[in-house]
């Protein structure tokens, strides 16, 4: 079965990140999982800047990014604004936005406006949801 090469988890709550890592591993859909606890760190990771100052010419380009909306300093939508400015070589292939509350229609509408956001879900992820995503994005 196909796997995502790298999945990037962006959530300010470390416990949530750990939980999602476990779920994804249980589902067995990813080769690599990297989690960060802020939008800025996520950008640094994608652009190999800041703490990830390393090989300038190769970027991680994760297959899938799980993005929390409610984060301090830079929330999910603000992250997307910065994300849009990235080079194509730096961007990931897909993004999934996750909700903090149960399907707030305003957030959902706003997410639909952004072309890079391919799906919108409730937290927490479950094994079934992750498998569904694999079906959807790695046919």
């Amino acid at each position: 079965m196909k796997k995502f090469n790298t999945i990037l988890l962006i959530d300010d709550d470390q416990a949530t990140n750990e939980y999602h890592e476990i779920i994804i591993n249980l589902a067995g859909v990813a080769n690599n999982i990297h989690s960060v606890t802020s939008g800025q760190e996520g950008l640094d990771y994608l652009t190999s800047k800041g703490n990830y100052n390393g090989q300038e010419d190769s970027y991680p380009q994760p297959d899938l990014i799980f993005l929390d909306i409610n984060m301090p300093a830079m929330n999910g939508f603000e992250f997307m604004i910065e994300y849009d400015k990235l080079d194509a070589s730096q961007k990931g292939r897909h993004i999934v936005v996750m909700l903090t509350s149960s399907l707030n229609p305003d957030d959902k509408a706003r997410a639909a406006d952004n072309n890079n956001i391919k799906d919108f879900m409730d937290k927490p992820l479950s094994k079934a949801m992750v498998l569904e995503l694999r079906e959807k994005f790695l046919p």
Partner: peptide, 10 residues
């Protein structure tokens, strides 16, 4: 709801 979710998950 947020921390409650974490509790339930773990």
């Amino acid at each position: 709801q947020e921390p409650l979710r974490t509790m339930t998950s773990y």
